[in-house]
Computed example of a mutant assay.
Amino acid sequence: MRGFVNYFSIANCKRELKALAGWIRRRLRAIQLRLWKKPSRLHRRLKQLGKKPPFKFIKMNSWRNSLSPLSCVSMPNQWFEELGLYPIEKVNTGWLALSAFRK
C-alpha cells in the first residue's frame, strides 16, 4: 500500500485516498468478523474494551454489518494502525508531495 500511495501522491487525490482508506478498513472489519465466526467473540472483545452489555446480535459474515457500530467500536481506526496498516489518508498529496520529491 505504501508504494501505491507514494506513486499516486503527486496527484491531488486526498479525498480519494481517504475514501479508499475507509473502504480498506471496512473490508478488514468484514474479514475479522468472518474469522470470529460467532457473535460471542465480538461481545467478548467489546467487554474487554469496557463496553456494557447487552449487545445486539449481528450476522458475522455480512458486508453490511462491517459498518455497524458494534464492529466499529470493537475495531477502531487506531487498532488497524497498531497492527501495522499504513495510514494512506495521512500522506501529503499534490504540490506538497511534489516539493518533497524535488529536495
Rank of each mutant, 00 (worst) to 15 (best):
R34L: 10
R34C: 10
R34E: 11
L35F: 03
L35A: 15
W36C: 06
K37S: 05
K37Y: 03
K37M: 04
K37P: 03
K38L: 14
K38G: 02
K38M: 06
K38T: 14
P39C: 07
P39G: 08
P39E: 08
S40Y: 09
R41T: 07
R41F: 10
L42E: 01
H43V: 09
H43T: 11
R44S: 14
R44P: 00
R44T: 15
R45Y: 04
R45N: 06
R45G: 00
L46T: 00
L46N: 00
K47T: 13
K47W: 05
K47R: 15
K47H: 07
Q48V: 04
L49R: 15
L49P: 04
L49H: 03
G50T: 07
G50M: 10
K51Q: 14
K51W: 09
K52I: 14
K52T: 15
K52L: 12
K52A: 08
K52E: 12
P53H: 06
P53I: 09
P53K: 09
P53M: 05
P54W: 10
P54R: 11
P54D: 15
P54V: 13
P54E: 13
F55L: 13
K56I: 12
F57P: 05
F57H: 15
I58K: 06
I58L: 15
K59P: 09
K59R: 15
K59M: 11
K59C: 12
M60C: 06
M60A: 03
M60S: 04
N61L: 06
N61K: 10
S62K: 00
S62T: 11
S62N: 08
W63R: 10
W63Y: 06
W63I: 09
R64H: 09
R64M: 09
R64I: 08
R64W: 01
N65I: 00
N65G: 01
N65M: 11
N65V: 10
S66V: 01
L67F: 02
L67Y: 07
S68Q: 09
P69T: 10
P69A: 06
L70M: 09
L70E: 04
S71D: 03
S71E: 02
S71V: 12
S71I: 03
S71Q: 02
S71F: 01
S71R: 02
C72D: 03
V73A: 14
V73Q: 12
V73M: 07
S74H: 00
S74T: 02
S74W: 02
S74N: 03
M75P: 01
M75T: 02
M75S: 02
M75W: 01
M75R: 00
M75D: 01
P76F: 02
P76S: 00
